[in-house]
Amino acid sequence: MSDPNGLIQPGRPAPGFTLASTPDGRRTGPEQFRGRPVVLAFYPADWSPVCGDQMSLYQAAAPVFEQYDAAVLGISVDSIWSHRAFAESRGIAFPLLADFEPKGEVSRRYGAYTPQGEAARALVVLDRAGTVAWSYLSPPEVNPGADGIFDALDQLATDREVMTR
């Protein structure tokens, strides 16, 4: 079951987690990037054509994410071996996390799990302190692009300027 309240909303603290990100057992999670904005990109599956486009797009946009000092983490219920082959075939260098065991647990905690047993296609942007700044649920067959993410990152940068002034 997915979180009955739906996708996690802005203002909530992001649930902490780490997930396997490499076959040798390394684990990665948002807390490792505190002090930087973090983009969590939940997606239904490696290899489905839309996902491929979405994750490939985020890789192609890596220099722009760097300008914002933002870390991007892709998350699906696929195994780490599938992630590795997928990342190699698409030239993806950012971490793809395996929400594999217990299956979909992290996706559920973010309200981004579907009855089909996959992660929803959901974007969650965390601010530097680990609070949800923006979230967006896309229809599974629609690649949401990155414009919403960059609008949220712009807003975070503006808020920060106001605070330090």
């Binding site: 203002g11 949401p144 919403g148 949220a152 807003q155 975070l156």
Partner: peptide
């Protein structure tokens, strides 16, 4: 930032 952005 309480209002979600529309994807344009």
């Amino acid at each position: 930032m309480s209002t979600p952005f529309q994807v344009t």
